[in-house]
Structure formats: structure tokens, C-alpha cells
């Protein structure tokens, strides 16, 4: 902010502002606004494709919000020892995390609706489950689970899926199995609607070095 001194020695701001700055900044702000509103996931995807090809080592925190994951993409390498620290950040909804690919569907008046993944990523994978708090239920399916600490409420039916109550958490530690390629994760609770509402993400598993 500049100030000028008039002939009587009083301070005055020079209010004769420039239209160019005004229109430039306004256009920029509108552009950013539109980009953030309509293209934030697209932009994030480009960034992530460009800069984020390094596989994650160790613990990756996966936060569950209503109805989205953070992060929306994870990269692993076959053979690495990794931990998913899953946390449900919602105050109101329970969420799960299923990993797989392909879909099982059920018909509805509005077309087929995905109910879960066709292929369960966890099939035959040894996984150590620890730090389980406020777990709604845990379906093991064909995962080979070992438990550290309190054992969560186990349920059956469907793919391997830890479902967390609001504020719940669970850690899944495992060695990335030899299943390279693109995988998806998603939440199918509440009659599959969380997935419809956009609660999904992708995992890239790179082949072993």
C-alpha cells in the first residue's frame, strides 16, 4: 500500500487504481475457482501421474471421509513390507476398504449397481491386523490373518473388508503380493451407495525389481 503526501502534508492513498491489475487478478481468481470446482480430481490425477510414481514404503495412512478417500491413489512395489493405517475421519458414517478389481453387480430399476469387486486382492495374502479400534466388523474372506492386540468383531460374506465405525482405526501390515497392475479400492457400505457416491481410489502395484 502506497501513500502519498498532498500539499498540506496530509497522507492520502492514491486511489486511481489500475484496471489491468483488477481484470487480470479477477480473471485469474475466476479461473482458479472454476478449475478447483470442476477439475480438482482431474488436476490432482495429472500431478500424481507426473510426480508420484515412486512406490510408497512402510506405512500409508488412508483416511476415510464422507464419501471419499485420502489419498485417492497409492503406489506399491511387489515384495515391499507395507502397512495400511486406515482411519475413519467421519463423525457420522461407517466406512470400509475393499481392494480388488472387476465388479459383482445386482440389477436395479436404474441399471446394474456394483456390489463389490469380483477379484479380491487379499485372496491368500498373509496380513497382520493390529491397532483395531471401533471396528464395526471385519470380513476376512480368504486372507490369512494374524491378530495383534484386541481382535475385532469378525463377520462373513463378501470380499476382505474392514468396516470402521465413526472415528475407528485399523492397521493392516503385509508384504505386497505378486499381483502387479492396477487395483481399485472402494467402500460399498449402505447398500453400495458409498461407491456410487464416489468413494473409491486406485492402487498401482509395480512388479518387483
Amino acid at each position: 500500500m502506497s501513500k502519498t503526501v498532498d500539499s498540506e502534508g496530509r497522507f492520502h492513498r492514491d486511489t486511481d487504481w489500475q484496471p489491468g491489475v483488477f481484470f487480470g487478478v479477477l480473471a485469474l481468481v475466476l479461473l482458479i475457482g472454476v478449475a478447483v470446482l470442476f477439475g480438482r480430481f482431474w488436476i490432482a490425477g495429472i500431478f500424481q501421474k507426473a510426480f508420484d510414481r515412486v512406490p510408497t514404503q512402510g506405512t500409508v495412512h488412508v483416511f476415510q471421509f464422507d464419501y471419499a478417500y485420502e489419498p485417492r491413489h497409492i503406489t506399491w512395489r511387489v515384495g515391499d513390507r507395507v502397512t495400511i493405517a486406515l482411519r475413519n475421519m467421519s463423525d457420522t458414517h461407517w466406512h470400509e476398504m475393499v481392494i480388488g478389481r472387476g465388479y459383482d453387480t445386482v440389477p436395479s430399476a436404474f441399471g446394474a449397481i456394483a456390489t463389490q469387486f469380483k477379484t479380491d486382492f487379499w485372496d491368500g495374502v498373509p496380513v497382520r491386523i493390529s491397532n483395531a479400534h471401533h471396528v464395526d466388523n471385519l470380513v476376512l474372506n480368504k486372507a490369512r490373518a494374524t491378530f495383534v492386540g484386541s481382535k475385532p468383531n469378525l463377520a462373513t460374506g463378501g470380499d476382505f473388508s474392514p468396516t470402521l465405525q465413526p472415528g475407528g482405526s485399523i492397521n493392516l501390515t503385509f508384504t505386497v503380493p505378486n499381483k502387479p497392475g492396477e487395483w481399485q479400492y472402494g467402500c460399498f457400505v449402505q447398500q453400495y451407495m458409498h461407491y456410487v457416491a464416489g468413494m473409491n481410489g486406485t492402487i498401482t502395484i509395480l512388479p518387483a525389481k
Binding site: Y67, S108, A109, F110, I113, Q190, Q191, M193, V196, A197
Partner: peptide, 10 residues
């Protein structure tokens, strides 16, 4: 909520 349109039953 987001599942509202799908709450239908014949």
C-alpha cells in the same frame, strides 16, 4: 443423501 434416487422398490 447421495443414495436418495436409488431408494426404490417395486
Amino acid at each position: 443423501g447421495p443414495g436418495h434416487p436409488f431408494m426404490e422398490a417395486p
